[in-house]
Nucleic acid binder design. Structure first.
Lengths: 125, 125
DNA sequence: CGGTATCCTCGAAGATACTG
DNA sequence: CAGTATCTTCGAGGATACCG
């Protein structure tokens, strides 16, 4: 899959992309997807665990992003109970696991920037 | 730089991030930045060359993204002429070059998806 | 417990025309 | 040639309340 000419585009699932990087970014881009995936990369997590790991996301947004990732077959959702209180676990699919090296590299680059200039703060919420 | 507790956030340049991946994504996220950077990774390019490599971006958006990348010190802009017609070249800074491995991995993952399911189309514009 | 529903804000990105 | 100006659209994400 190599674009040979400037007037060529990649077509995947009825969408057009100018470059293979944008295909990846369509799967993991946005404000929260890499964060969710990063938290799932070492094993499955329950909804509320994810919630606690991401103190500044809203429930609605987390829910929407999870659904999107599920639709893209990157994560899977498993329900363990039939009546409330529910137990739901999210984990990476085999396909989703192919993203781990990508997530690692993204995280490491961010870490290097942070080592020099960032500080850690607490959220009161 | 390691978050030890769920109520901790990273603070960098007056912005808050929940995770080191989101720091990186703030630098290279959005619809066009990785595409621009990918085209610059093998050397400098003139404005119009970039333009031609990205047939579906608008001038305005390309211009805004270039400015943002320049502000973040990821790319540099060099002007070679003082009067029109102008000659301007964009290239990665040393800092920007540290992103190359990240871009490669992102591009390779996208490529693997494309190999299986994507096709190449031509834009008429 | 694990979400949805509803409404809203705000900024990224597009369309088009124009300029030093 | 390399942009900027102006106006507009659109959808991601947020706030809040409620539900099975």
């Amino acid at each position: 899959m190599k674009l040979k000419c400037d007037s060529e585009l990649i077509k995947l699932n009825e969408k057009l992309y100018p470059c293979s990087t944008s295909v990846t970014m369509d799967f993991i881009g946005g404000k929260w997807k890499t964060v969710i995936l990063y938290h799932l990369k070492d094993g499955s997590k329950r909804y509320h665990e994810l919630r606690k790991s991401m103190p500044i996301v809203t429930e609605r947004t987390l829910s929407l992003q999870l659904k999107q990732l599920e639709k893209d077959k990157i994560i899977k959702r498993k329900v363990y109970t039939s009546k409330p209180p529910l137990k739901v676990e999210y984990s990476l699919t085999e396909f989703g696991k192919t993203l781990i090296p990508v997530l690692e590299v993204i995280s490491e680059w961010g870490n290097r920037i942070c080592e020099e200039k960032a500080e850690i703060v607490k959220v009161s919420k």
